[in-house]
């Protein structure tokens, strides 16, 4: 069977390149239209990762940088599934996350926020989805932090999420927000997304059923990647 191509990206659902309230986007957004390409082999393929690439404990941010004890903060599980637009699981795909600590401070040499570093918290994790597309991380809930956009802008608590999918066209980086956070509505980065329903797709609900009693709470975050054409009619990538 000829390899099938992917559904085109809905650019009205995605944030535009230019979102002037997010100031840095003004000089970093292309002014000319994107050139639309139909998929070739260069687009429907992409990197493949396996269990040899990562360690099984890389998904536990409570332990993966612990030096003298556990990090300080609200202990949470973040879990969900990676699906495509046809609701089919995306198995074996690499999910990477990064975040600030409970006080909103990043372990990065360029972050100078006055909130302290947590000596037991690195702030990154990675895992592969299982055969049903499930993934899970254990971490502490990140704090809000200020950033130089408007004078008094604060990012909502968020976790950055990177996912590969099966094809280079599915590559995605996004941010997870937490249910009920009043900063979400005020954030120019979030509000770069034009459709409020799309914003809701980035808000992880509290998931009591996945919490561990007397240990940690849980949030659920499903990720949807581009779907793939079935071969109702042949979409040939190659001739003959």
């Amino acid at each position: 069977m000829t390899p099938a191509e992917y559904y085109q990206r809905d650019r009205t659902w995605q944030p535009p390149a230019l979102a002037p309230d997010y100031k840095t986007s003004v000089a970093r957004s292309p002014g000319l239209p994107l050139l639309s390409l139909r998929n070739s082999l260069s687009e429907i393929t992409g990197p493949v990762f396996g269990h040899g690439d990562i360690d099984a404990t890389d998904n536990d941010l409570i332990r993966n940088y612990a030096k003298t004890g556990d990090p300080v903060g609200e202990r949470i599980i973040v879990h969900g599934r990676v699906l495509d637009e046809d609701a089919r699981p995306v198995p074996g795909t690499l999910v990477e996350i990064w975040q600030a600590n409970a006080g909103g401070r990043y372990r990065h040499k360029k972050d100078t926020y006055l909130a302290p570093i947590d000596p037991n918290f690195g702030g990154c994790g990675r895992t592969l989805t299982d055969d049903q597309g499930h993934y899970a991380f254990r971490t502490v809930k990140p704090g809000a932090y200020p950033w130089r956009n408007w004078v008094n802008n604060w990012r909502p608590a968020h976790i950055h999420v990177s996912v590969f999918g099966r094809a280079f066209v599915q590559r995605l980086i996004t941010q997870l927000y937490f249910e009920g956070d009043p900063l979400i509505a005020q954030c120019p980065i979030v509000q770069a997304i034009p459709d409020p329903r799309a914003v809701e797709q980035l808000i992880a609900p509290l998931d009591m059923n996945a919490a561990v009693p007397l240990d940690c709470l849980a949030y659920r975050f499903d990720i949807v990647l581009r779907g793939r054409r079935s071969t109702l009619f042949e979409n040939r990538l190659e001739g003959n």
Partner: peptide, 18 residues
């Protein structure tokens, strides 16, 4: 169909994760 998860900027501290 489900909708694709919206993208967000990788931000200035992308290196922490990647």
């Amino acid at each position: 169909y489900l909708k694709e998860t919206p993208s967000q900027t990788a931000g200035p501290y992308v290196h922490i994760g990647l």
